[in-house]
C-alpha cells in the first residue's frame, strides 16, 4: 500500500517536473508570438499580457521589408546543398576508413575529426579571405562548401562509428555476390545507417539554416543572402519596434519548426535508433 502510494506521489512529482520544463521550453516562443501580434503602443502599454486586439500588421510589414520568397529560396539551396554534400562526403570517408584496406585512412580520419576543434570565430577572417581568393564570395557554392566543411567532422565520426559495427563478413558476402564498392556503400550500408543519417540530417539542417556568421561573411549583403541574415538586417535597422522584430523572428524560425513538427516522428525514431548499438 504504502509503496504504491509513494509511487503515485512520485509519478505526480515526475509529471510536475516535466511540465515545468516544458513550460520553460515553449514560453519564450509563445511570448514572441504574442508580442508579434501586438501593436507598437499595445506592447508599450502592456509588454507581458495578452494583446487587447490581434494585429497582423507586423507580419505584413516584415514581409514588405524582406524579399521573403528569395530569402527562403537562398536558405533552402544553401542548407540543402551543405547538408547533402557534407553527409555524402562523410559517407565516403567513413566507408574508406572503416571498410577498405586503405593505408593512411586513420590519418585522414584523425585530420578530419580534429578540425572539429577549430572554432569558426577564431578563423572567420582568414576563412573569408580564402573564400574571396577562390572567387566564391557572394556565391551559393562558397557557402555550401563552407557548410559542408563545418558539418564534416561530426558526420564522419558518427557514420564511421556506425559502419564500424557492421560485420566485415556481411561486406565480404556482398563482394562475393559481385557487388561493387559503391553498391555496397549506397545499397547496403547506407540503408542500415538510415537512422544515423536521419539524425545527422536534422542536426545539420538546423544549424545550417540557423547559422549567421558564415552566411554573413560569405554572402555579404548580396541577393543570395539567407533568411537569417535578412532577419538580422531587419532587427539591425534603427526604427524597428519589438513587435515587428518578433514577427520577423517568427517568420525566420517557422520553417525549421514546421519541418521538425512534420517529421517529428521519423526524426525521433531516427535519432533513437541512430545512436547505434
Amino acid at each position: 500500500m504504502n509503496a504504491r502510494h509513494s509511487a503515485r506521489i512520485g509519478r505526480y512529482l515526475l509529471t510536475f517536473a516535466l511540465v515545468v520544463v516544458a513550460v520553460a521550453a515553449v514560453y519564450p516562443l509563445l511570448f514572441t508570438v504574442v508580442s508579434s501580434l501586438k501593436t507598437q503602443s499595445g506592447f508599450a502599454n502592456d509588454p507581458l499580457g495578452l494583446p487587447a486586439g490581434i494585429t497582423l500588421d507586423n507580419y505584413l510589414e516584415a514581409f514588405r521589408r524582406m524579399d521573403m520568397p528569395r530569402l527562403l529560396l537562398n536558405s533552402l539551396i544553401t542548407t540543402l546543398g551543405g547538408l547533402v554534400l557534407s553527409v555524402l562526403a562523410a559517407l565516403l570517408v567513413a566507408y574508406a576508413v572503416t571498410k577498405l584496406r586503405f593505408r593512411g585512412g586513420k590519418v585522414v580520419f584523425l585530420l578530419i575529426i580534429v578540425t572539429l576543434t577549430i572554432p569558426s570565430q577564431a578563423i572567420i577572417y582568414p576563412l573569408y579571405q580564402t573564400v574571396l581568393d577562390l572567387g566564391m564570395s557572394g556565391e551559393y557554392q562558397g557557402l555550401i562548401l563552407a557548410y559542408a566543411a563545418f558539418g564534416l567532422p561530426l558526420g564522419t565520426y558518427q557514420l564511421a562509428g556506425y559502419f564500424q559495427q557492421v560485420p566485415d563478413e556481411l561486406i565480404e558476402a556482398a563482394r562475393v555476390d559481385g557487388a561493387g564498392h559503391l553498391t555496397i556503400l549506397f545499397r547496403l550500408l547506407a540503408p542500415i545507417a538510415t537512422p544515423a543519417l536521419a539524425a545527422l540530417a536534422i542536426f545539420n539542417f538546423v544549424w545550417m539554416w540557423n547559422d549567421l556568421l558564415l552566411p554573413l561573411v560569405i554572402m555579404g549583403g548580396s541577393d543570395s543572402k539567407t533568411l537569417m541574415v535578412g532577419v538580422s538586417l531587419l532587427s539591425g535597422q534603427y526604427d524597428v519596434s519589438v513587435p515587428l522584430v518578433s514577427a520577423g523572428l517568427i517568420v525566420a524560425l517557422l520553417p525549421v519548426l514546421v519541418i521538425y513538427l512534420v517529421f517529428q516522428r521519423q526524426l525521433v525514431a531516427g535519432a533513437l535508433a541512430g545512436s547505434g548499438k
Binding site: I124, G220, S232, L233, S235
Partner: peptide, 21 residues
C-alpha cells in the same frame, strides 16, 4: 548589398584587406 548596421564591419573589413568587392 544591404548588411545590418551592427554587422557592417565584418563584411566590409575583408573587402578592404583583399581589395575586392
Amino acid at each position: 548589398q544591404s548588411v545590418p548596421f551592427d554587422k557592417y564591419p565584418e563584411v566590409q573589413g575583408p573587402y578592404i584587406t583583399s581589395q575586392s568587392g
